[in-house]
Amino acid sequence: MTVLTSRRNKNRGQGMTEYIIIVALIAVAAIGVYNLFGSTVRNQTASMAAALGGDSGAAGDANKAATKNGKAAADEAVKVKGLENFSDAAAVKPTK
């Protein structure tokens, strides 16, 4: 009986470990995407919040800024990056 319980616990531990690895990989990918498109996401969120608040002028400005930052992020994503110039890519400041 203890052998069956021991095997069952090992299988549960293996499943949990695989789940944790998958969640960690998704988190790393999400951080990378947010680093690349973070300013675009922030500006689009600000645009939606301003539009819901009834301020169409601020919504339009935030939408234009989001479009500009999205194009800049897409241009940056096309460039070939290596570890030797990773810090240069991380130092790109969002435009307003």
Rank of each mutant, 00 (worst) to 15 (best):
S47F: 00
E18R: 14
M1K: 08
T45L: 15
F37D: 00
M48V: 14
E84H: 03
L4A: 09
T67H: 11
M16I: 13
R8A: 07
T45W: 10
N69Y: 02
T40E: 10
S87I: 12
A30L: 15
V3M: 03
A73N: 06
Q44W: 01
G57R: 11
N69V: 04
V23N: 13
A51W: 14
K81G: 12
A29S: 13
A77K: 11
T67G: 09
K81C: 10
A74W: 08
F86V: 06
A91C: 02
V80R: 12
T45H: 12
E84V: 08
S56T: 08
M1N: 01
K71W: 02
P94W: 01
D55R: 14
V33P: 01
V92T: 10
V41R: 00
T45I: 15
T45P: 08
P94K: 05
I31D: 07
N85E: 15
V78S: 07
G82Q: 00
L52W: 12
A65I: 11
A65S: 12
G82Y: 00
E18P: 02
L52A: 15
V92Y: 06
Y19P: 03
G54L: 14
K93F: 09
I26T: 05
G54Y: 07
F37R: 01
K79Q: 13
N9I: 07
R42W: 00
A90I: 10
N69L: 07
I22L: 14
K71T: 05
A73S: 15
A30N: 09
G32W: 03
A66L: 02
D61H: 03
A89M: 07
A72S: 03
N43A: 08
I21R: 10
M48C: 04
T95I: 06
M1R: 04
K68W: 05
T45K: 10
V23S: 14
E76W: 09
D75W: 08
S39F: 02
G15I: 00
T2A: 01
T5I: 05
A89V: 09
D88L: 11
T40Q: 10
V3W: 00
T45F: 12
L4R: 03
N43H: 12
A24F: 08
G57P: 02
G53L: 13
T45R: 11
V80N: 11
S56M: 14
K71E: 09
S47M: 00
I31Y: 02
A51F: 15
A66T: 04
A51L: 15
V28T: 06
R12H: 04
I26C: 08
L36E: 14
T95G: 11
K10N: 02
Q44M: 10
G54A: 07
V92K: 00
N43I: 00
Q14P: 07
A91N: 07
V33H: 03
K96E: 15
D55E: 08
N85T: 15
G60C: 10
K81H: 15
K81A: 15
S56W: 00
G32A: 12
S87V: 11
A24I: 08
N69R: 06
K93E: 12
Q14S: 11
